[in-house]
């Protein structure tokens, strides 16, 4: 499956990603994240529950997004419960870099509790 992207903003901006994030599709995710940050969305939650494949190119885009929101004192957290996706975060040590949560609401609550 190709990549599908959607986003909507409540307290934070949720980016819903569906399909495969690889060297071919990752540039589209990168453009969306850049666009959101440029428009002032500095608290991003990337919902990866429907992601079927993620490689190091996709990780690079997420790390790049994290770096960019941090420049605005923002956050970029992930929602992911799929073991096949979580595995690559563990292998690369990125579980210590990203906040990874089981639901969007949990990510929002954690972010607010850290900032209060």
């Amino acid at each position: 499956m190709d990549l599908k992207l959607d986003h909507h903003t409540q307290d934070d901006t949720e980016v819903v990603v569906e399909g495969e994030i690889d060297v071919y599709t990752a540039p589209r995710l990168r453009e969306l994240l850049i666009d959101l940050v440029n428009k002032g969305h500095h608290h991003l939650i990337v919902n990866m529950e429907k992601v079927e494949f993620l490689d190091s190119t996709g990780l690079g885009v997420l790390v790049g997004g994290l770096k960019r929101v941090r420049a605005h004192d923002g956050t970029l957290d992930l929602v992911c419960t799929q073991e096949r996706i979580l595995k690559i975060f563990r292998i690369t040590g990125l579980t210590k870099v990203f906040g990874i949560y089981e639901s969007v609401q949990e990510a929002i609550d954690k972010r607010k509790s850290k900032q209060s």
């Binding site: 490689d55 990780l59 690079g60 790390v63 790049g64 040590g93 870099v97």
Partner: peptide, 25 residues
Amino acid sequence: PHASLGESLTSGGFGGLSPDVGLAV
């Protein structure tokens, strides 16, 4: 991989990770 990750987080670009990370994977 970790040196590359640190560099990615602190430098100015918005690019991908070093190819080292792919090899580490």
